[in-house]
Design a binder for these strands. Structure first.
Length: 497
RNA sequence: GCCCCAUUCGUCUAGCGGCCUAGGACGUGGCCCUCUCAAGGCCAAAACAGGAGUUCGAGUCUCCUAUGGGGCACCA
């Protein structure tokens, strides 16, 4: 095997620009990025748009945005530039043509004039392309070419023997050459196929480690033979396991957008994670934990920490069912440990999107009592949206929300009525002072804390579920809290239909 | 059909021949705490796919089978 141990590490992510970024691709990119960072190397983004039919305009921007959101910096790429560009394959066409011709001239490849119909017939036999142009007389091939017949360039795969290659994750893998076909290197439209393009580019861009999904493993021997034909030092290859559906059946990459599993929505596109209210650090942590583990029995770790330990060699060889349920847990952990200022800024945009006008000072007061109860940023809306609604427009909730367990409208009214002087009499309106006084009050009127506190919660928030009652009232202020309690009293006095 | 890769609790994983009566985490169930919802604490159930070998000894090595994933395009 080629010794690459001393090479300067350069890894790359080389997606086709076919639309929004899929989480499966991002996970592969994350592994490549982590490895580059760990080795103090470089991470390159290259766009593989050699199939014109599949190219979707705007994809490159989407890819960049995904990396920006995740905080994964790119050293060289379409936006960053770099010494080995351009980083978009459609802008490197002459290079591929040059090297394809070189392979033909040196006898490693040949022009094939087989038509689509001929190919179809051959495929019908079950044996694939029969290499009919592999040893075609040069003079006749020249005639066909001169006559304007379209052709492709195919690689001359050894007809027998074995090709062995080393995969960083699973070791030596052997293949029977006879199983492989003479793959197309250059298409008749003048564009290269992946097989040629990635090798030419990885060579010219000095890529030291190629990371790609495991579906590329079967063509690994072909690529090895191409490297050999060029006489170039091959990079190390790591064929990454892929993400499967949550039930373990089928590739996740086949899902083109979020879907429901066991009644829960499962995001797969980067923008879907953003919209669902997940934090970028939580998503990175989540992804890093699939197929690789930090060690020390730790599930939660920062990107910085992962960068100290990550190694492609340690990646698990087996595919994984997408453990999406873990993301909710991780996300809530990240929310709990986030700095108030940071969380506030994220929550602010969520609230604004939901139509609220957000006062920064109030948000800062609310965030601490929310941190422990949000799974996603989106949860802020039902839990605490009322803090940011128009207070003047607040309306008392209906009796079914106001009246607590084992209470009725009469007892609820009594509790609320008698709470007013107690709250009014407090020297300070802090949550702890309220708590003390109201606990005593509950005892005196013979109701449980839950009944009294719950009545107040409903009166003041209009909800059955909310942050703690007294913390909430402290933020609302004494005046507004009492106003709402009186509103509730009025509502209870109204005859209900 | 042929070829390749994989296989530890429901799921993500630790384990690289004896430290394993298999560890952690999510999820699930129970208890505690508790003003709702959470969070937190404690406890519990839960796995080496099956079969042959190799070895004094196998979750760890080999082979077979089964199952899952993937490839066999002028797509990547």
């Amino acid at each position: 095997m080629t010794d690459n141990s001393n090479r300067f590490v350069r890894t790359r992510y080389a997606p086709s620009p076919t639309g929004p970024q899929h989480i499966g691709g991002i996970r592969s990119a994350l592994f490549a990025w982590l490895y580059a960072r760990r080795q103090r190397g470089q991470f390159i983004l290259r766009i593989e748009d050699t199939d014109q039919k599949r190219t979707v305009p705007g994809s490159i921007e989407l890819i960049q945005e995904s990396f920006d959101w995740l905080g994964m910096d790119i050293d060289e790429g379409p936006r960053q530039g770099g010494a080995f560009g351009p980083y978009i394959q459609s802008e490197r066409l002459e290079l591929y043509q040059t090297w394809a011709n070189w392979l033909v001239d040196s006898g490693h490849a040949y022009k094939c004039f087989a038509t689509a119909d001929e190919l179809k017939e051959m495929r019908a036999t079950g044996k694939g392309y029969d290499r009919r142009y592999r040893d075609y007389p040069a003079a006749r091939a020249a005639e066909l070419e001169a006559a304007g017949k379209p052709y492709v360039i195919r690689f001359k795969m050894p007809l027998s023997g074995l090709t062995a290659g080393e995969d960083m994750i699973r070791g030596i893998v052997e293949f029977d050459n006879a199983q492989l076909q003479d793959a197309v290197l250059m298409k008749s439209d003048g564009f290269p196929t992946y097989h040629l393009a990635h090798i030419v580019d990885d060579y010219h861009m000095k890529i030291s480690h190629v990371t790609r999904a495991i579906e590329w493993l079967p063509s690994f021997p072909l690529h090895l033979r191409i490297w050999e034909a060029f006489g170039w030092q091959q990079p190390q290859y790591a064929h990454l396991p892929v993400l499967l559906n949550p039930n373990g059946k089928g590739k996740l990459s086949k899902r083109k957008q979020q879907f429901a599993d066991a009644g829960k929505s499962v995001p797969v596109l980067v923008h879907e994670f953003i919209e669902a209210g997940y934090l970028p650090d939580a998503v990175k942590n989540f992804l890093t934990n699939i197929g690789w583990n930090f060690g020390d029995n730790r599930e939660m770790f920062s990107t910085q920490e992962a960068m100290q330990r990550f190694d492609l060699k340690d990646v698990n060889a087996a595919n994984s069912a997408y453990p999406i349920a873990k993301l909710d847990w991780l996300n809530s952990q990240y929310i709990q440990t986030s700095k108030v200022e940071y969380l506030a800024s994220l929550l602010k945009s969520v609230l604004q999107e939901a139509g609220y006008t957000v006062d920064d000072e109030r948000l800062r007061q609310v965030v601490p009592i929310l941190q422990v109860r949000l799974k996603t940023l989106k949860d802020v809306v039902p839990m605490a949206g009322f803090f940011f609604a128009d207070w003047a427009a607040f309306q008392a909730p209906p009796p079914d929300i106001l009246v607590q367990r084992k209470m009725d409208s009469v007892s609820t009214a009594k509790v609320l009525e008698e709470s007013i002087p107690v709250l009014q009499g407090l020297k300070d309106f802090s949550a702890s002072s309220q708590h003390g006084a109201m606990t005593q009050f509950a005892k005196s009127v013979g109701f449980k804390n839950g009944q009294v506190f719950g009545s107040l919660r409903a009166a003041v928030t209009g909800q059955r579920v909310s942050p703690p009652t007294f913390e909430t009232m402290e933020i609302l202020g004494r005046e507004e809290s009492l106003r709402r309690i009186k509103l509730a009293l009025q509502a209870l006095a109204q005859p209900t239909s």
